[in-house]
Design a binder for these strands. Structure first.
Lengths: 198, 198
DNA sequence: ACGTTACTGAACAAGCTGTCCGCAACTGAT
DNA sequence: ATCAGTTGCGGACAGCTTGTTCAGTAACGT
């Protein structure tokens, strides 16, 4: 007895309506009735599935993270050796497909809680990977893995946000990855075009 | 005829109450009455000064940014030559003094709008500075200054957030700056403890 | 001391929330 | 095709929050 078709329909419609409306008006400005109206669903039905709009947003975000996690797994395995940029590239592709949802999450709608879910998930996964590699290669990281992960993830998310907010023909994902890799490899001086003069 | 003392008192009290309460319960959960009650001010008075709680939050944030801008100006002038880390250090000090406010802004409360104000202000200032230096030194940046600024600011803000959320005796500001500078200088491979193996 | 300005406390309509209900429509399994 | 069980519907409910108004009072700056 798989999930009832009506249940799926309602949930999907409500999630999609939320994303559309948050993009248009922002999370705070939304009413539960706005959402149900757009989704073409009765208001009582909303409460049969979700506690409130925060709950809905949280679940939509959690689903997105699950999907991202599944897509990232093989890429991470592939690049276990060094920084190949494969996971980042995969994330950018995912973001392109789910652009609207990425936008509203990265904008920090919903008091930043979905964004926090996103950031924390990425930071945790990254830190774990850093630690695993350090152990595997028997090297001592020069900077605390957790801090390093935060930095790396903060950087990626900043770029990701910039990228999904760009209008139309933005930089191709491959190009963005190349830039991030250059930064990771050479540091900021290289990027800015002149050598250290401290 | 400077600003009326009563006006200043009310505004300050409301701002302080907002920060306290957002830290305790989160922005969405707050009522205007909660704020006025904590500030010991009549509800009608609130509306005499601010349109709604978003407005209050925005002004508090704008004031913070003004203050930060003033404190950063000399540090930026000092480090016009290379990456000295002085501006970052000054920002960390500011964050230590206004820790609660920094926390709630960086958490993305208020649908991330205050955070966006913060990020955009930093990114703009940074990008301008990058461009000015590139021109002064007559070099061609290898990466678009706007993108580079986003990356740099995204990184700083991620660290800043991590720092202000730390419990009690966290890393001293000087230490954090050193790490950030190392990253900016050497790139991520150096930090992770092994050399490129791509 | 005085004219001006801000704060107060109360009241208001309007809107939103979350929950309930009986009834209708749909679903999956037999 | 049938049927028991589930889900959706629409309306109604009290309770709360919002934003505005207003007359009276207190504090302000000069």
């Amino acid at each position: 007895m798989a999930e009832d078709r009506r249940t799926r329909r309602s949930r999907r419609a409500l999630g999609a309506a939320l994303v559309e409306l948050v993009l248009e008006r922002g999370f705070t400005a939304l009413t539960v009735e706005d959402i149900t109206e757009r989704a073409d669903v009765a208001r009582a039905t909303f409460y049969a599935h979700f506690r409130d709009k925060e709950d809905l947003f949280a679940r939509v975000t959690a689903d997105l993270l699950d999907e991202l996690g599944e897509r990232l797994a093989p890429a991470v395995a592939d690049s276990a050796v060094g920084f190949t940029g494969k996971p980042v590239l995969e994330m950018l592709r995912h973001a392109r497909e789910e652009r609207d949802l990425y936008r509203i999450v990265l904008r920090g709608d919903g008091d930043g809680k979905p964004l926090q879910m996103f950031t924390d998930a990425c930071a945790k996964a990254t830190a774990d990977e850093f630690r695993a590699r350090a152990e595997r290669n028997a090297v001592q990281p020069r900077i605390d893995p957790d801090l390093l992960a935060r930095v790396w993830v903060g950087e990626q998310i900043a770029v990701l946000r910039w990228w999904v907010e760009q209008e139309s023909p933005s930089l191709p994902a491959e190009e963005v990855v190349r830039m991030l890799l250059d930064l990771a490899l050479h540091g900021r001086y290289w990027a800015s075009g002149f050598e250290p003069a401290v």
